[in-house]
Each structure stands twice: as C-alpha cells, then as structure tokens.
C-alpha cells in the first residue's frame, strides 16, 4: 500500500521516518515532498504536519522531527509487533514494551497520533530493512500500515537511495515479473533471493563471469565476494575507473547518466522522470555499450540447451 510523493506533499499530515536519516541522505525530501510544502489540504505547510522519527541513534534528522523515538538496536520488529497489538487494544506486557527501549507513554502517544492522522505515511530506510530481521521488518511495517487503514488512511514507502535502483526494480519486474535476484539459467526467469542474490552467489563462488554496470561492489561487498570477483573474468561499465575496474579483466568507460547520457530514471515512488544531460561526453552511453555487447553475443552460435546450464566445476 503506497502512494506517490505528490500525494504525500498535498495530503500527508502525519509522517514517520523509520530507520533513515533523510536530513543527510535525502536532503530535499523534507522541503520538496514530505514536510514543508503547503497545499490545499495542508495550508500551513509544516505546521499542519507531524513528523515522528524512529531510529536507533540521534542523527541530524532529529532536529526536524516533532517526536523522536529511540528504539533499541535490532528491536524494530518487536516494536512494530507491539504497535500492531496496541492499535487493536490487545494486551501487551510491560516486559514486551521495555524490550523495545521505549516507554508505555511514548507508545500510547504514538498510537494516538497515528489514529488521529488524516493521512499517515511511513518512510522506511535501510536502518529498518538492512538490520536484524531485514525484509521481515519491512513486511511487518507494511502490515502495520495496512492495519492502520481500519482507522485512517495510511501508506508505507521505502526510502530508496542510489540513483536509479528503483528503475532497476521496475524494469526487471516489467521484463521478467521479478524485481531482483533472478536466474535465467533454465531459459525462463526464476526468482530466489538468497540463492540468486549477488552477495550469496559470489560468496558461494557460483558464477564464472561477472558483468557489473553502474555499481562498485569492489568497494562495498564483503571480502569473500570480492575475492571471487578477482578469480573470475569481471567486466565493468562505469564512468570512472572504480575499485572493481581495477580487479576486472575488461573495463569500459561510459558517459555518466544524467550528466552526459540521456534516458529515464525512476523516483523512489516509481515515477519515471526524463534526464536532461548538460554535457557532451567523449564516451558512449551505457545503453549503447550494453546493446553492442549483446549484439556481439547474439552473432555467436546459440548454445542454449547444449551446454550445461550450471557450473560443472567450482571456480
């Protein structure tokens, strides 16, 4: 259950940021979409909105919040579960509340505010989705948002970072039916994060050639994954010579998207926006290079069904 940032801007009077630091990671989120804008429904802008920040530590975003709830690290799931019970007036023990690091009063106040809202929204960041519990945390928060709709309008939206990751999800969903963690090795797409997600694949050593575009795993991934990238032929497309390029067999410099390559990028609420490049680049765009590599591959004889569609020996 989600919405666009346009709806948030015009209607949301109760904003919760959970496990994120928008003041530093999404600097214009407050001013452009979520807190400051005035609208027909919120004529006084910031004064008509309430912002609650849920995080494990005090970040710069705290200053922008009305209420700050400092949850104990790793207890997001417990907190969400307690809240889910509290909105339905189900009994909760004091020990269960104490475990979250917050007081009964704080939670009662939070629940009252949620219920009093006309349009509430949860923005959740990596502090929720990448810590203990991972996607179970996100799922729990989505459930809480769904259950809040018994009382008022509530939605949830992930705070995506990293340029066009949202676009990658959308394009893969459109083409394959799945957003990430896909294998085509049987000739049709299969989805299994954990098995087909890159970190796991690399750590297990389950690939014998890596094609990396618009990412720098050499700087971000755990060591065993990087070691594997060094063992197999790696191909990198990037506007810069990155950490990964340095361990790659092939690096191709491409024009940076949005600066000198045109195209489309998706905003975090899945609104596609055109890019308006300002510079001419001496390098080709990613799109052109990938298309040429693909065409070169297509000229080679088709082997689908002849070769083993798996690794016969571990690299």
């Amino acid at each position: 259950m989600t919405c666009t940032l346009g709806e948030v801007k015009n209607r949301a009077d109760f904003i919760v940021y959970w496990g994120g630091n928008p003041a530093e990671c999404h600097p214009r989120h407050f001013t452009k979409y979520a807190l400051m804008p005035k609208s027909q429904f919120l004529p006084r802008g910031r004064k008509d909105r309430t912002m609650v920040l849920v995080d494990i530590r005090e970040t710069k975003s705290v200053k922008a919040s009305d209420v700050f709830l400092q949850v104990r690290p790793g207890k997001d799931f417990e907190l969400i579960t307690v809240l889910r019970a509290m909105i339905k007036d189900q009994p909760i023990s004091e020990a269960q509340i104490a475990e979250t690091g917050l007081s009964v009063e704080q939670l009662q106040d939070f629940v009252a505010r949620m219920k009093a809202a006309r349009f509430g929204v949860f923005f959740f960041g990596m502090g929720l989705s990448m810590t203990r519990g991972k996607h179970m945390n996100s799922a729990a928060l989505l459930t809480l948002a769904a259950e809040m709709n018994a009382f008022t309008k509530f939605v949830a939206m992930p705070m995506r970072g990293h340029g066009n990751v949202t676009g990658a999800d959308v394009i893969m969903r459109w083409q394959t039916g799945y957003p990430f963690g896909i294998s085509f090795n049987r000739g049709y797409p299969r989805y299994n994060p954990g098995e087909f997600s890159t970190v796991d694949v690399l750590v297990r050593g389950d690939t014998d050639c890596a094609f990396i575009i618009g990412a720098d795993p050499g700087a971000t991934m755990p060591k065993p994954a990087i070691e594997h990238l060094k063992r197999v032929p790696t191909i990198v497309l990037d506007p810069h010579v990155t950490h990964t390029s340095k361990m790659a067999r092939v690096h191709i410099t491409t024009a940076p998207a949005g600066i000198s390559a045109p195209g489309t990028a998706y905003r975090m609420d899945e609104i596609p926006l055109p890019l308006r490049p300002a510079l001419e680049s001496p390098y080709p765009s990613d799109e052109e290079v990938v298309r040429r590599i693909k065409e070169t591959i297509l000229k080679k004889p088709d082997w689908m069904g002849e070769r083993p569609q798996m690794l016969t020996t571990q690299v």
Partner: peptide, 21 residues
C-alpha cells in the same frame, strides 16, 4: 561462461537496464 552474472544497474538509465535484462 556457463553461469554469468549481470549485476548493478543503479547508476544508469532505464534504457540501459532494459538492455541488461
């Protein structure tokens, strides 16, 4: 390669992502 991996696609355009898929 028997089991190549195509990974990344954040800092690029949707058009390039489509080619990758």
């Amino acid at each position: 390669a028997d089991m190549p991996l195509v990974y990344g696609m954040s800092n690029t355009t949707c058009e390039a992502q489509r080619e990758c898929v």
